[in-house]
């Protein structure tokens, strides 16, 4: 995947920052405003995807190599499991064991913001991994019919 023209690159460089900031907002405020871990994670993946479309596949892969992406993916999944299992410290699986706090505050609702953050990391990085798999690894071709070099 080659990059695009100078105009696209400049716009993408500016806009990606805001997209990733917006995804962080959607994830962190998931228990107060509409949103949550899943849409925030997808928006994060879309921001990285914009970088990949504008600059070619090398830049995002340099920032976030495959190994680190899979580590982050597993970290998100394990974090969510850990929150679920930590409920046992107070009683049972998935118990909301942290203090609830006041409604309408950022730090409220116990484990929900933490779960949202872990789900956001997991979804974003794993969708990035899907894009990587589709664009970097060559597709499944029957033997003998090797594809032409990647554009």
């Amino acid at each position: 995947m080659k990059g695009m023209s100078l105009i696209v690159r400049t716009i993408a460089r500016v806009v990606t920052t805001f997209i990733i900031l917006y995804s962080a907002y959607i994830v962190v405020y998931g228990h107060i405003t509409p949103g949550g871990g899943f849409p925030g994670g997808v928006i994060l993946a879309l921001g990285i995807m914009l970088l990949m479309l504008a600059f070619g596949k090398d830049l995002p892969l340099r920032k976030l190599p495959e190994g680190r992406a899979s580590v982050l993916d597993c970290l998100g999944a394990l974090g969510f499991w850990a929150i679920a299992l930590l409920g046992f410290t107070a009683g049972y699986f998935f118990l909301n064991f942290l203090g609830k706090g006041e409604p309408f505050r950022l730090v409220s609702a116990g484990t929900m913001p933490l779960s949202n953050i872990f789900i956001g990391i997991k979804v974003g990085v794993s969708l990035f991994a899907v894009l990587t798999a589709l664009s970097v690894y060559r597709r499944f071709y029957p033997p003998g019919e090797e594809p032409p070099e990647e554009d």
Binding site: I32, K100, N116
Partner: peptide
């Protein structure tokens, strides 16, 4: 749950 967004409180 003290979560204002009801959808999130159901989901999580």
């Amino acid at each position: 749950t003290k979560a204002v967004n009801f959808v999130t409180s159901v989901l999580l």
